[in-house]
Design a protein around this nucleic acid. Structure first.
Lengths: 125, 125
DNA sequence: CATAGTCACTTGCATTTAGCAAGTTGCTTT
DNA sequence: AAAGCAACTTGCTAAATGCAAGTGACTATG
């Protein structure tokens, strides 16, 4: 369920879960409405497929996303944010706002992202 | 000044700067009022000194912190947040809030952190 | 019916980054 | 003269990342 935490500091603990180069990019893509492996792999940042598979497994282990089959034969899966995962939206929003203020020439965030709330992004929320 | 960005997405770009296991922990420690190398090294998460030196150099390169001498002979330095660096406070606040909500048994954040504003944490701000 | 294509991964291997311990430099203190 | 301290640096091992190719279970095409 949880990784080994470096300390009980909440910032450090959050980073033990999402503090790497790819995890938050996978979550960002899911906020953008993509739920299948192929859709999550086809992003401008060029994530390699072994990393994507690893992060999806980790995110599922930590309860930030769910993996459910949308068909059998051949088995095909879709990934969705849980409440815990969707609740990271404010972190992504603040990161995007910071980048918009301090890094030139970034893409502008759409209103569904800037004004969205976590409960809009998980089933029954 | 800037790293090579994977894309112009603001979230991905922010992660190109702070998206690793240690960078935000170094910044957290500086928000907590520590400014000297030894103080930044002496944290419960046990950062190794080569990583700390590397992250301080990166953060200075990217303009998130400044390095200034507070004495000559022997030269001793102190590190301070710039406006750009201090402006990451909302990201840390949202991370801490998320961890407090979803990970059991974390330390509770002090009011100077929870209620702080970026301009309280850089010179002349 | 055979071949080609798609999806969702998995495997192998090279490169990069992180982690740990010990060493170095230039003073200061005993 | 010897020990200590601050701020790193170096060497080496281990882990994570990146890239390309391969796999299995179908589905669609000629």
């Amino acid at each position: 369920m949880w990784p080994e935490f470096r300390s009980r500091c909440p910032v450090a603990s959050a980073l033990d879960i999402v503090g790497d180069r790819w995890t938050l990019i996978v979550l960002r893509t899911m906020f953008a409405g993509r739920h299948r492996y192929g859709e999550l792999a086809d992003i401008p940042e060029k994530i390699s497929t072994n990393i994507l598979a690893d992060r999806l497994e980790r995110l599922e282990d930590f309860g930030l996303i769910t993996k459910t089959a949308y068909q059998q034969n051949p088995p095909r899966y879709q990934y969705h944010l849980t409440e815990k995962g969707a609740d990271l939206l404010p972190v992504l929003q603040e990161m995007a706002a910071w980048a918009a203020r301090h890094i030139p020439d970034r893409w502008s965030s759409p209103p569904w992202f800037t004004e969205g709330k976590p409960e809009h992004f998980y089933p029954h929320g």
